[in-house]
Amino acid sequence: MSHTVDIPQELKDSLRKFRFARRKSGNAALVVKINKQKLIMEEVEQFEDISPEDLAEELPESSPRYVVLAYELKHSDGRVSFPLILINWSPSASETGLLTLHASALLDFQTTADVGKVLEVREGAEGLTTEILDASLLHK
Rank of each mutant, 00 (worst) to 15 (best):
P60G: 14
P60M: 11
E61M: 11
E61D: 07
S62G: 11
S63Q: 07
S63I: 02
S63T: 13
S63C: 11
P64F: 12
P64H: 10
P64V: 09
P64L: 07
R65F: 10
R65Y: 04
R65W: 12
V67Y: 00
V68I: 14
L69Y: 09
L69E: 02
Y71V: 05
Y71L: 01
Y71F: 14
Y71M: 07
E72F: 03
L73Q: 10
S76A: 15
S76V: 04
G78H: 11
G78A: 08
G78Q: 10
R79Q: 15
S81E: 15
S81Q: 03
F82A: 03
F82N: 06
P83D: 13
L84V: 09
L84Q: 10
I85Q: 04
L86F: 14
I87P: 03
I87C: 02
W89P: 02
P91H: 14
S92K: 15
S92E: 15
S92M: 03
A93S: 13
A93E: 13
A93Q: 11
S94D: 10
S94R: 03
E95I: 04
E95W: 08
T96Y: 11
T96E: 14
G97C: 01
L98P: 03
L98Y: 04
L99I: 07
L99A: 02
T100S: 12
L101I: 12
L101Y: 07
H102I: 10
H102G: 00
H102K: 00
A103E: 07
S104G: 00
S104K: 11
A105L: 06
A105N: 11
A105D: 03
D108Q: 04
D108G: 05
D108N: 10
F109E: 00
F109L: 01
T111R: 14
T111Q: 14
T112A: 15
T112I: 09
T112H: 06
A113W: 03
A113V: 01
D114S: 15
V115G: 03
G116V: 04
G116K: 12
K117R: 05
V118F: 12
L119Q: 05
L119P: 02
V121I: 13
V121N: 08
G124F: 04
A125D: 08
E126Y: 06
E126M: 01
G127H: 13
L128Q: 04
T129P: 04
T129K: 11
T129E: 00
